[in-house]
Simulated scan of single mutants.
Amino acid sequence: MSKRIDRSWVVFASVENDEHDRCVDIFSRPDKSFGYEEFRRDVEDGGAWTPTEYYSGARYDTAELAYAAAEKSVLWLRVNPKFRRMPISR
């Protein structure tokens, strides 16, 4: 998996948890593939968003497939019904 965030990726959906300390970004790449990444934000990091699991190396053919994979991988996204099957517009 990739351990960096590529600046050519375009984030078009970002889902933040209720505590505002975790988020999942869904993005597209120039090669027309899609991916996602989970981030955390901690006070000791100055509030900066930091990747947590490096899911961004996986490639998906559609935004919907990327979001479905995120739901399976990211516990807080999966267990909170308000985040399930969030519509993706791209």
Results as ranks from 00 to 15, higher is better:
residue 77 L to E: 08
residue 78 R to N: 11
residue 55 Y to E: 05
residue 78 R to A: 13
residue 79 V to G: 09
residue 45 D to C: 08
residue 48 A to Y: 04
residue 26 I to C: 09
residue 30 P to N: 06
residue 22 R to V: 00
residue 82 K to D: 11
residue 76 W to C: 10
residue 78 R to E: 10
residue 51 P to V: 05
residue 50 T to A: 02
residue 38 E to S: 07
residue 63 A to M: 02
residue 44 E to N: 12
residue 58 A to Y: 02
residue 26 I to A: 01
residue 31 D to V: 00
residue 67 Y to G: 04
residue 64 E to Y: 10
residue 21 D to P: 00
residue 22 R to S: 09
residue 56 S to Y: 00
residue 85 R to K: 15
residue 40 R to L: 01
residue 19 E to W: 07
residue 44 E to C: 09
residue 57 G to K: 04
residue 52 T to D: 00
residue 44 E to F: 12
residue 66 A to T: 03
residue 27 F to Y: 13
residue 31 D to H: 03
residue 57 G to E: 04
residue 35 G to M: 09
residue 76 W to F: 07
residue 20 H to L: 14
residue 45 D to M: 09
residue 82 K to Y: 05
residue 54 Y to H: 15
residue 40 R to V: 06
residue 19 E to Q: 13
residue 38 E to F: 00
residue 83 F to Q: 03
residue 68 A to I: 10
residue 29 R to H: 06
residue 68 A to P: 05
residue 79 V to F: 08
residue 54 Y to R: 07
residue 27 F to I: 03
residue 44 E to R: 11
residue 67 Y to W: 10
residue 24 V to K: 04
residue 47 G to S: 09
residue 73 S to D: 09
residue 64 E to A: 13
residue 69 A to W: 07
residue 24 V to F: 04
residue 52 T to P: 06
residue 25 D to L: 04
residue 74 V to L: 02
residue 63 A to E: 03
residue 59 R to S: 05
residue 42 D to M: 15
residue 30 P to C: 03
residue 80 N to E: 13
residue 65 L to G: 04
residue 62 T to M: 08
residue 27 F to L: 06
residue 50 T to E: 06
residue 28 S to E: 10
residue 61 D to M: 11
residue 63 A to P: 01
residue 56 S to K: 10
residue 75 L to K: 15
residue 26 I to Q: 03
residue 30 P to D: 08
residue 82 K to A: 12
residue 54 Y to D: 10
residue 44 E to G: 02
residue 75 L to D: 13
residue 25 D to E: 13
residue 26 I to N: 09
residue 71 E to L: 13
residue 56 S to A: 15
residue 66 A to Q: 03
residue 57 G to T: 04
residue 18 D to C: 04
residue 77 L to N: 06
residue 61 D to V: 14
residue 23 C to K: 15
residue 75 L to N: 15
residue 31 D to M: 01
residue 40 R to G: 00
residue 20 H to W: 07
residue 59 R to F: 04
residue 50 T to F: 05
